[in-house]
Design a protein around this nucleic acid. Structure first.
Lengths: 200, 200
DNA sequence: CCTACCGATCGGTAGG
DNA sequence: CCTACCGATCGGTAGG
């Protein structure tokens, strides 16, 4: 059995993610976090250097999850259309399996110091570049329509994906597979070339 | 000439919107807001009842802007496809002309007390219902494909629209008209029926 | 709109 | 991980 009286640094980071996601970084005090873990606020400083340190740790987890998801999607698929669907499915999985870290990553980066905020922006840019590349390749090979702007289209797809965290409920009317299919279908229709629509 | 030594309640609310949008409600102190207006934090209480009162005022402005935009869009257009484009153009205008209120409306509602948060949720729901109705009418009249789920499609369109605030810059490569056209085009392609694509 | 102030809470430290 | 505490800042008030 695992101990229920001692907290690891990981426990602290995970709880911090939950509170940051729900109340925001500024809306969460070290005493709030201590209470969540059954200890005093001052006791947290044996696990972490400070509050900012916690935000950095949570946000880095979020960034790593998206990066790993994108790499896996590219590794398992070759055609741009298939890669895009894998990117979509991977993104939805990351969002729904790690909601707290994702919410913090997406919404609380402004509370980071300049250096770490720059790192988050860089991670987000790299992830977006993956989407753009896939869309660009799709235009080249004919999966997507020739006039598609890969940059703008990537922004639109990511807008839909990042918003999932805001409205989707696993108890809701559609399950995760349906959600992925609906997003994939919507974006595919928006981007695919007329010929491609008969090839699927 | 307008006075530059006295602030109205409107000035206070507007400045609050800017700071809430940039640093969040919890990340903004009454002293921060006073400094922004050239007075002390304690002096704000002659204009407003308290900090929460300010958030309510800012968020209500955001809600009213979207409501008015939707009404105008429906009043000036009859066909579902035209109404959707008007809704998109109106939404983009609201976001870009009132960025602070919109950001606060979209991102800071969690800091409202239960009653006012419920009012925000209701306003958002009503606004979303407008989109759903238009999409439903579009399916009925043949503007949009028959298998379209108006509920999900409305969520996707609004995801793209609400994200604009996060990435678009008026100094960027595309101007506002192009932005509206690109969003309208992307969503139209995703939703329109094959016959409708030749009727446009 | 300022002066002067309140109690509460903040992030964090020293020492065990 | 707790006790005991620090200076700073918080939202807000009384009185002018």
């Amino acid at each position: 059995m695992t101990s229920d009286t001692r907290n690891s640094r990981d426990d602290v980071i995970e709880a911090a993610g939950r509170l940051f996601a729900e109340h925001g970084y500024e809306g969460t005090s070290m005493r709030d976090l201590g209470r969540e873990l059954g200890l005093l606020g001052s006791s947290l400083y044996s696990h972490v250097d400070g509050k900012q340190d916690l935000l950095v740790a949570v946000v880095e987890r979020g960034a790593a999850l998206f990066t790993a998801s994108a790499e896996a999607a590219l590794a398992s698929h070759v055609s741009p259309a298939a890669r895009l669907e894998a990117l979509i499915a991977g993104h939805v999985d990351v969002v729904l399996d790690h909601r707290a870290e994702v919410r913090t990553f997406l919404n609380e980066a402004r509370s980071l110091d300049h250096r770490h905020r720059a790192a988050v922006v860089a991670a987000r840019d790299a992830y977006e570049q993956t989407f753009r590349s896939v869309l660009r390749d799709g235009v080249t090979c004919g999966d997507f329509e020739a006039t598609l702007d890969p940059k703008l289209a990537a922004t639109f797809v990511l807008s839909i994906l990042n918003a999932v965290e805001r409205w989707y409920s696993e108890e809701g009317p559609i399950d995760r597979t349906q959600l992925v299919d609906e997003i994939a279908r919507f974006t595919r229709r928006a981007m695919q070339s007329p010929t491609g629509s008969f090839a699927g």
